Simulated assay, not measured.
Amino acid sequence: MHLAIFGATGRTGRVVLDQALQSGHQVTALSRNPAMIAQHERLRVVTGDVRDSAPVAQTIEDAHAVVSTLGRQRHGPAICTEGTRTILSAMAAGRPRRLLVLSNYGVAESRHRSLYVAVSWLLERSVLRDKEHMEALVRPSETEWTLVRAPILTNGPRTGRYRTGSDLRLTFTSKVSRADIAEFMLSELEDNAYLRQGVAITS
Rank of each mutant, 00 (worst) to 15 (best):
A179L: 08
M134N: 04
S23C: 06
E82T: 10
S103K: 10
A35V: 13
T171D: 09
G165N: 09
S126F: 05
L3N: 09
I5C: 00
I181H: 03
L137H: 13
Q19V: 03
V50Q: 04
V127Y: 14
S23Y: 12
E144A: 06
S120I: 03
P151S: 07
Y116S: 02
R149F: 06
K131M: 04
V56L: 09
G76W: 09
A78C: 12
T86Y: 08
W121L: 03
G10E: 07
V56N: 07
E183C: 08
R161A: 06
I60T: 05
M36I: 06
S53Q: 15
D18N: 13
E41M: 06
F172M: 03
S203Y: 12
A63H: 13
A118I: 01
D180P: 10
T146M: 13
D49I: 13
K175W: 08
R158T: 00
E188M: 09
L123R: 15
S53W: 15
W145E: 01
D130A: 05
R196M: 02
T12A: 07
T47V: 03
R11H: 07
I60V: 10
Q39P: 14
S203W: 13
L21Q: 11
I87P: 01
S114M: 01
D49F: 12
D191A: 09
T143P: 00
T47S: 11
T146L: 11
P34D: 07
V27K: 04
K131C: 05
T171A: 05
H25E: 01
G83K: 14
R72M: 07
I181E: 00
P96K: 14
F184T: 02
P55A: 02
G24L: 10
F184C: 00
G156E: 10
Y116H: 09
L88H: 09
N192M: 13
S114K: 07
S120P: 06
D167Q: 14
S120K: 10
L195I: 15
T202V: 15
E132V: 04
I181W: 06
R42S: 12
A63E: 08
H40F: 09
L186C: 00
E132D: 12
L3D: 04
R44H: 12
Y194F: 15
G10N: 12
L168I: 11
Y162I: 11
G165S: 09
A29K: 11
L17Q: 01
I37W: 06
M91V: 05
E188N: 13
F172Y: 10
T146E: 04
D167I: 04
I60C: 07
A93L: 13
A54K: 15
A35Y: 11
P34L: 03
L189P: 02
F184Y: 10
I201N: 03
F184I: 01
F172S: 02
L100D: 00
P151G: 02
G165Y: 14
L70R: 14
I181S: 01
A200Q: 12
L153D: 03
N33G: 05
S177F: 11
